[in-house]
């Protein structure tokens, strides 16, 4: 996987963790979990975001604001964001040197 895509996936996972912790804090703490490290996690998130190419970071931010998730999996040659077909030529390029975007919705593509 392209190193920048690896960072973007980690950033999205972290953003979801922060969001879910804030939204479901009461429920999760009811199960016994403590979240005293939330501010540290937010700082770690900023450190990670700082390692991402600015143009990709800005694209990630725009997509997240618009769709909720900027990076989506490709399953069965379909973008799981908009269900458009992904050309098979993308697959061969994916693990080489590019971060791929869906030609239909612009989301960043991840092959799980």
């Amino acid at each position: 996987m392209h190193p920048q895509l690896q960072l973007l996936v980690a950033l999205q996972d972290m953003d979801q963790m922060i969001r879910e912790t804030e939204e479901s804090r009461e429920q999760l703490e009811g199960l016994g979990f403590k979240h005293e490290g939330l501010e540290n996690l937010k700082r770690a998130r900023e450190d990670l975001a700082g390692q991402i190419d600015p143009s990709l970071g800005s694209w990630y931010k725009r997509l997240t604001a618009r769709f909720g998730h900027a990076v989506v999996p490709v399953v069965g040659n379909l973008c799981m964001g908009c269900f458009a077909s992904i050309p098979s030529s993308f697959v061969s390029k994916t693990n080489i040197d590019k971060v791929q975007k869906c030609e239909s919705c612009g989301r960043l593509l991840y092959w799980p």
Partner: peptide, 17 residues
């Protein structure tokens, strides 16, 4: 396929508490 991503996520979760 991507163990590094999972490891990073689990470590991040432990940073929360």
């Amino acid at each position: 396929q991507n163990p590094d991503t999972i490891l990073q996520m689990l470590k991040s979760r432990e940073h929360l508490g």
